[in-house]
Design a protein around this nucleic acid. Sequence first.
DNA 1: CAATTTTTGAGGTACGTAAATCAGAATTTG
DNA 2: CAAATTCTGATTTACGTACCTCAAAAATTG
Lengths: 346, 346
Amino acid sequence: MKPTVHDIAKIAGVSLATVDRVLNGRPGVRAVTKGKVEEAIASLGYVRDLAAANLAKSRTYSFVFILPANDNSFMIGLHEEVRGAIARSSADRSDIRIIDVPPFDAEALVMALESVLLDKPAGVAFVALDTPEVRAVTESLKQAGIPMVALVSDLPDSARDHYAGIDNIAAGRTAGSLLGRFLGGPFARDGEATVAVLAGSMLVRDHRERLEGFSAAISEAFPNIYILPVLEGRDDPALAETMISDALRRNRDIAGIYSLGAGNRGMIRAIQKAGVARRPIVIAHELTASTRSALSDGVIDAVLNQDAGHEVRSAIRVLKAKADGLPVIAAQERIRIDIFLKDNLP
Amino acid sequence: MKPTVHDIAKIAGVSLATVDRVLNGRPGVRAVTKGKVEEAIASLGYVRDLAAANLAKSRTYSFVFILPANDNSFMIGLHEEVRGAIARSSADRSDIRIIDVPPFDAEALVMALESVLLDKPAGVAFVALDTPEVRAVTESLKQAGIPMVALVSDLPDSARDHYAGIDNIAAGRTAGSLLGRFLGGPFARDGEATVAVLAGSMLVRDHRERLEGFSAAISEAFPNIYILPVLEGRDDPALAETMISDALRRNRDIAGIYSLGAGNRGMIRAIQKAGVARRPIVIAHELTASTRSALSDGVIDAVLNQDAGHEVRSAIRVLKAKADGLPVIAAQERIRIDIFLKDNLP
DNA sequence: CAATTTTTGAGGTACGTAAATCAGAATTTG
DNA sequence: CAAATTCTGATTTACGTACCTCAAAAATTG
């Protein structure tokens, strides 16, 4: 049988109350006695039964998710996953609340985080924006002992406890590597080719990192591939369509496109309308309804994806572990870059 | 507050004992009364507090993992992951036991499953072998109400409740697609190329399915790629080395290799020793120490991987859910085909 | 050494559910 | 309608931990 507090009391030769005082860090125990109790705990290999403890405390973990009220498929999906978790939350003693903030609005994010500071939840997950003000609030939250997880977009060198999202530099590198190799075929006259990059905004960290990785991988392995100046489509399908259409018209030998943000619907339309003889190799991010069908139809060649559901569930697991002071299983919480070809669509 | 059994009793106008009888399917309740209780449960949206219930029952979930005592890196890793789960098991009220069986020995597997039938655990996970006898035992286990999860290798059309492993046909297709496109570059004179396939054994379902997917993808998209007769290396590095060496010597224009089983260490050595002018494009399975370093060194071009840790944890989650009669989150339990290039190594 | 403070023990209640007992009520049977 | 049977209620204990109170013991102080 698993040892209980009663066993500790017996072995240490003290009363249950004393064991309780030691276990829960309550005052009124001499150092000697404390030592005896701790010795007994160690010798028995006692581990507190969390379920019983939570029951006794009638504890519920209250978590807050701060999400940008963006209207692209990915963010909508992220919202849905959090709502799914909320639906399941009663089963696992958690109580999850969503705070919507305007997208790309650091001030609003800071305000949301400050409001969180007041009702002291057991943990916060938020899609980070990389500004000094946001960093500063995380410090206050850290002071208040509230575990924080950065979701989807990281905030390095801050007080956040964990990042639940993909390695965007690696994602960019992978895209570059795939594009370079895929280009080898139809376009490799003498290995030279021109590729376009469509981003949302260079102000967002994820996009910057993806571009960085992409450029690095291309220049290292495919020196003869030329990358056109980045098109910033603001994650807006209409704008993306115009920009890609223009680019394809101006530069008829574009052999590849890397779309590292949202707004892929527009890009796909532009390619379909362009009607170029040899369609470019296209690599995009996020598996949505439109990228999925474009992949099936052969308009897109590969999709790099981050699984919003995994990110949300991982964030919750990590927050819970942090709230309980337990270690996280690192391998389980690594968010992976899914690579989808039309052959392995789920 | 969450409704409790006391609330149900109050609303339904019955005693706690009756509620308990209804909730736990004990006899001695008239249909009318049962109806009243169920109505109250529905109207309150009551959900049983599993933690409290398990505490009251002082329940522990006992699970059995039946694993082949194979000595390739993947199986060793799988063992380790299960042992890791055992180390963590005290925290989550589970008690996991490993039964080792000789590899590829259906009779031994059947005997192990029969032995499991006796001590009636809360669930069983096993690496399936595809024979009628194994199928038959799963029926007995089903009869006994023991949830079963097929691990790594599936047993379709059997009584197993779940499969915790990758879609091997999709994996094969993906390998074919990648190899075809990667070949485009250096070898695409006129799109013609010869590729070799190294398998463990065509008797194993996973390997058959991978080959099937691979061949299909190649013939559909790359009709000019010729696949040499399959080499069966029995997952043995030494044998694999000889076979690949021989193949490369006999057929100097091998442009690609798909290694869909184990024994990659040998294959890698063979390629390095061959010293062909233009080294073939290589796609292998399972990220191990040797495939990882070969990927870094550029000897292998892509590795398809199944994460043993995820498979084990998923199997446990599913078994627990089945034991509790709870639904599983399908998206969470889909085991993904990881595609690693040297750019996204974890 | 007496007075004070600190430490410890003993005991209880609570969390939400399971499971048991036993008496009493309702129903069915003969 | 009495007897047998089936249902139901009331109450209790237990699971492992948290948290509370009160009294007793031990240590410290003046």
